[in-house]
């Protein structure tokens, strides 16, 4: 009988052990995913605060479009893109540190993620917003399920889901070349075996 009791006890302990290990693993995974979102937001904030629409060396407006927000969906969920030019070095007044930054939501092997790629300035001048295709997108926030960007432009406008009114690529033609006043970004992530979580961050452009 003693051994019978012990066997039951041991079985119970085994179940508890399995459950505990699983909870621990899930918690860690969730932590990592949140950490990924934090990283993505840090990068986004840093990049957006460096966004410019003027050549710091000349003071002239950078020709063409230099801030694009693409409002699109993937599987019915927001899967926006951001493209802009940043001036990454505050200490130098030259033009050598202007970089084209792209953020996008993508799905790789069935797993959604928010990724970032950049294209540095070359001798050819200020980099275009569109990448060459050779750049590598670094995954920032994995297990992402959506990436939605909203924009605050001029007076009277609240955050809008898109800079665009018609064009799919969509910047507001009237404010072409300008920056919005602020962007509000929402990233949702869903760790495996867990519920979806959303993070929102607003970044104000340092416009006067």
């Amino acid at each position: 009988m003693v051994f019978g009791v012990m066997s039951i006890l041991a079985g119970l302990l085994a179940v508890m052990a399995d459950s505990g290990m699983r909870a621990y693993r899930n918690a860690r995974r969730e932590h990592e995913i949140v950490r990924g979102v934090s990283l993505a937001f840090e990068m986004l904030r840093r990049d957006l605060l460096g966004a410019i629409d003027r050549d710091p060396a000349t003071g002239n407006a950078i020709a063409g479009v230099n801030f694009i927000g693409i409002d699109q969906t993937s599987s019915g969920r927001p899967a926006d893109q951001l493209r802009f030019i940043v001036f990454t070095s505050p200490e130098a007044a030259g033009r050598g540190d202007m970089t084209s930054i792209n953020y996008r939501f993508e799905t790789v092997n069935g797993v959604g993620r928010l990724s970032r790629a950049f294209r540095a300035m070359t001798s050819a001048g200020i980099p275009p917003l569109n990448l060459t295709g050779q750049e590598t997108f670094e995954p920032l926030a994995v297990n992402a399920t959506s990436f939605n960007v909203e924009y605050m432009e001029n007076a009277g406008d609240n955050f809008q889901t898109s800079l665009a009114s018609s064009s799919p690529d969509a910047y507001n033609a009237a404010t072409e070349g300008k920056l919005p006043r602020a962007v509000r970004m929402t990233v949702t992530v869903q760790p495996p075996d867990s519920k979806e979580r959303s993070f929102t961050q607003t970044v104000m452009f340092p416009l006067d």
């Binding site: 085994a14 052990a17 459950s19 505990g20 290990m21 699983r22 621990y24 899930n26 918690a27």
Partner: peptide, 12 residues
Amino acid sequence: VMYLPLAGRYAS
């Protein structure tokens, strides 16, 4: 074994 669920709980 008793510690494991607690640890999982704490981690969560």
